[in-house]
Amino acid sequence: MIVVVAVALVVVVLWFTLGVRAKDLPEPEPVSPIKHLEDKKARIYESLRDLNFEFRVGKLSDTDYQRTKTELQKELAGVLADIDKAAPAPAPASNTKQDPLVCPHCKARFDKPMKFCGQCGKAMETRS
């Protein structure tokens, strides 16, 4: 009796552990490669909203508020720029402005916005 139970236990456990079929492999959730940037963006928005609220309840002086706000906005802009850089494909429909990171003349791409293209030397900026 005890032998039967023991063998059954071992067999069931091994079958469960080792019997992984191809259809058992879970399909991983699609993960955006820029998820950490999106997270960061969300966090800064949250901080900004929080900052506005704290200012409204009078916990911050006017100068503190302005300085912190500008800093946060700059950081946010940096993150937004990074996101655009990583995934430039679908430009926002409303935004007819060209991508400032791509040279309009030779289509060379750069890491940061430039006044003149490092490839063909022509002016990249259409407006400032």
Binding site: S47, D50, L51, E54, G58, K59, L60, S61, T63, D64, R67, T68, E71
Partner: peptide, 16 residues
């Protein structure tokens, strides 16, 4: 809770 993130000026601390 009285000190803000990033910076708090002395005046706002006094007030708080």
């Amino acid at each position: 809770p009285l000190i803000a993130w990033r910076r708090s000026s002395i005046e706002s601390l006094k007030k708080a």
